[in-house]
Amino acid sequence: MRGGNRHLPYLYLAPALILYAGFLLYPLLRSAQFSLFSWDGLGASTFVGAANYVDLVQDPQLRAAFGHALVLIFFFAVLPLGIGLMLAAVLNRAKVRGLGLFRTVVFLPQVIAMVVVAVAWRQIYAPDGALNSALRAVGLDALTRTWLGDYTWTLPAVGLVGTWVQTGLVTVLMLAGMGRIPSEQFEAARLDGAGAVREFFEITLPSVRGEIAVALTLTIVAALKTFDLVYVTTGGGPGNSTTVPAYEVFQRAFREGAVGSAAAVGITLTVLIFGLNLVVNRIAERGER
């Protein structure tokens, strides 16, 4: 570009950069600053250094919230990945009709507002809801319970909603990855006498390494960011048995007047997500070489 136009790229960039910096980068920095203070949201604030971060390890309630997030990661990421891999591998072996329709259907949970998903599952988990009715219908009365009022079962029940939402995304992602494997590779393996299992571990799995990395990043981040689902289904209860980090951010900042602590949890979540992206991508890249 010639001399007079040297500033042109920056002019094209300016609107995006101003809005992005003003309403995302600046608040992020402010959050980091907030996290070093103790503030109730109204009065004066006091500098407390890293105390809000020390609380993350010491405060049992925060520790519980992060522990619950780990459980959710199992339901949002590990379970859907296992199901999605198996499902896609099986479907990829034989050409079946209706695959397009199947994709549309299993992907549907991804586009429904989480609040709607939460309302739907609340009704399914209700004492006289669909799940208990189904259990009674097949004579498993002993298994019925108040799914969202039970200290043991509420967190897995909430997690299962995540499995429902994420499985379709992971499956479609794996199908796309496996569809790109040249069929000669499978044919060669079959001539070698490889069965379905060996074929899966020797050809399919290594080929979709990149897709697995993407799927894990997306779903783990979704698990860490869970807010609407908990807010609508359980409100963190019963007791504190289903609180999650994002829910703690909201509670602390806007209900309990612990703004600094809320910011520290938010920043910690960000650091965890950055780290996760780095680690997962690093592992995926190393495998490709």
Binding site: L13, A16, L17, Y20, F23, L24, L25, P27, L28, R30, S31, Q33, F34, G41, V221, L224, K225, F227, P245, A246, V249, F250, A253, F254, V259, A262, A263, V265, G266, I267, L269, T270, I273, F274, N277
Partner: peptide, 24 residues
């Protein structure tokens, strides 16, 4: 570097910005 700055925003969760956004 500017592009990487934008990429950063893909990873920042709403939870990390919503608190100062409200008070500011």
């Amino acid at each position: 570097p500017l592009f990487y700055l934008f990429l950063l925003g893909l990873m920042v969760p709403t939870e990390a910005i919503v608190v100062p956004l409200f008070y500011d």
